[in-house]
Design a protein around this nucleic acid. Structure first.
Lengths: 354, 354
DNA sequence: TTTAGCACTCTGAGGTTTAGAGTGCTAAAG
DNA sequence: CTTTAGCACTCTAAACCTCAGAGTGCTAAA
């Protein structure tokens, strides 16, 4: 079951079977055509044995209830956000992916061994955007949720050493530090062993500044040399709070008729340039264990209140490390996007854990 | 002196002093207003003691010579690419930067120590785009032009080792490799020493596949273990051919009236999504030792034939490692962009070499 | 309760009009 | 020979108008 923005399942309100069918028809047609849907169209297209006049009446009801609106008198109806919500929660059935889609998704992974995690993510963004015709956002794996595994210090020359930090999820982070004094092998070994003991298994998030200070105190009694080694740790905390967000198909929004206004385009692209903000949005919207659909004003962030954001998460060794998202106008093919995303996340989980 | 796209200095053609002034006035006005410039405007704005009728005559001449065009009969003139070229080569005097600009450029560097090279580049892209109101492109430092400095191998556990490659420009590249057999310290040391001897001082570009194979042959006589260590080297060659290109101010093109057409915007944004292509363009356009101005059709690449690309290069320890560029419509404030870029490159050189 | 019929409404595409900016040319003035 | 004033002409772009078409709501009959 899909969760909505508030985390709960929305109540299935009392809508007669027929009203549901009509609402469904309107949503489906409008998503396809981007034009207001008239009663004629509904009565024909989904060949429910009912005249347009009857449908007009039902539509008027649905409008009163808040599921549909008319852009102007004497135009067809379009779904409101509430209408989409109802559709997503109650009326939508998920597409099976076409063979083509399956192929597109699976082939991008098998294309030679993609060892580099950045490449996997980047390609995923591409596939996701082209399969959905929307803009896709994918958060890179979050270092800070990984667990500390090993610390190594490797002297380079008299003045510099290389500190290497390895996590259980296979991240490697390194940094050259200045070491004023020459370090003896023995001293080094001692320090490194100590640190590894203390830190093993903690997630990077758990390595707080206070813990670092504590360790420092312990060690300084013995050695005053490693000041800089800690900088790596501390910076890991700060810098890695903000992870790269990979975008795919930013130009896709230009195909959407709701973005024919240059000013809207500008605002959107502006948003895309602000990585930290995108990160925030993804982080706040997503939920660990399911796909979340956040429609229009359900989004917290002003800039995307006319959009729908659909998010999912991927895991490495069962640890949730990143978020994938699809962003587009509220008029989007919900079932397709959700299906594609579900499949993509599956693939990602598989291939990242190996 | 600025070089034009063809590398040579363009000849100062015979243009009377007065024609030069008029051309100059048209360019300056048009850059500012984006509207065709009429004879009245010229005669007033630059208060040369000459009537509009005379200027009309001169303008007709300039049009015949190919420096100006009219969008339609009975409109003012706008500069042709040739006109811009002449302006850039002969008429333009470089702005002094305002105190504000100086501040903007210098402050982004001093903002806490920016150790991470990525951050420096990223910020530079930002400053450059906001100071010029155009889109900026900055190529990250090119690993492959750096010289090999040191190779280290660091055993992690029974099965895996970490290979670390360090260049003279301070790059560190690492990779976990699988080592089927346990390696003894002595063996390792032997191999590493050998490799370091052989490779020291070569640029990554010079480490060809054939050289690697040669080394392999030498070593395989002694050890069969390090197959994977070479993968790092080989992949360095391939993968790093394509370097990240950082963009700044992509939304700025939306402010340019020449991009009010959604279709042009699409093509432009599409280009921005293709990192390898951007890389190519920057690489091909730039010249090692000066700022290059490539106007309109002077660009090789179809997509930017209506644009001007201005590029410069930055160095680390006197080695040219990356390119910065500003891309916009041919109607751009050349002198400003060039001045800003010149200053930025200076700052970059300074701060990267320390 | 459903449906056919009809009067009514609103949009958006296409056509027309018109003010304004700017030109080229001519003929007079310097 | 060069410069300039004057004028007829041209072209654009904004403003306005028109009208077919799509779709509605309501009424009255089935």
């Amino acid at each position: 079951m899909l969760k909505n923005r508030n985390g709960g399942l929305s109540m299935a309100e009392a809508l007669s079977e027929r009203k549901q069918q009509i609402l469904r028809a309107v949503v489906i047609n409008y998503v396809k055509s981007a034009e207001p849907v008239g009663s004629r169209t509904v009565s024909r297209s989904h060949r429910m044995g009912i005249s347009s006049a009857t449908i007009r009446n039902e539509m008027a009801d649905l409008e009163e209830m808040g599921y549909l609106v008319q852009p102007h008198t004497s135009a067809g109806r379009i779904p409101t956000q509430l209408g989409y919500r109802y559709y997503v929660d109650n009326l939508m059935d998920l597409d099976d992916l076409s063979a083509d889609d399956e192929l597109a998704i699976s082939s991008f992974l098998s294309a030679e061994k993609m060892r580099e995690i950045e490449k996997i993510i980047n390609n995923s963004a591409r596939v996701l955007s082209s399969a959905t015709n929307q803009t896709s956002l994918i958060m890179g794996p979050q270092f800070r949720k990984s667990a500390f595994h090993q610390l190594r210090i490797l002297p380079l020359d008299e003045k510099r050493s290389l500190v290497v930090l390895i996590t259980d999820t296979g991240f490697i982070k390194n940094k050259v530090i200045d070491t004023q004094h020459q370090l003896s092998q023995a001293e080094l070994h001692q320090v490194v062993t100590y640190l590894n003991q203390k830190l093993y298994g903690l997630t990077i998030d758990q390595v707080t500044t206070s813990l670092i200070n504590e360790l420092k105190r312990d060690l300084f009694k013995r050695l005053e040399i490693l000041e800089q080694a800690f900088i790596l740790l501390e910076e890991s905390l700060k810098e890695e709070k903000q992870i790269r967000v990979f975008l795919g198909g930013t130009t896709n929004i230009l195909n959407q008729p709701e973005f024919k206004d240059v000013d809207k385009i500008r605002r959107m692209l502006n948003l895309f340039e602000q990585e930290p903000l995108l990160f925030q949005i993804l982080e706040d919207t997503s939920s660990e264990d399911d796909i979340v659909v956040s429609i229009g004003a359900e989004n917290k962030y002003e800039d995307i209140k006319e959009c729908t954001l659909i998010t999912g998460t991927y895991k490495i060794h069962d640890k949730t490390l990143g978020t994938v998202g699809v962003l587009g106008p509220t008029r989007m093919d919900y079932s397709r996007v959700i299906s594609v995303m579900r499949r993509l996340v599956d693939y990602l989980n598989q291939s990242l854990s190996s």
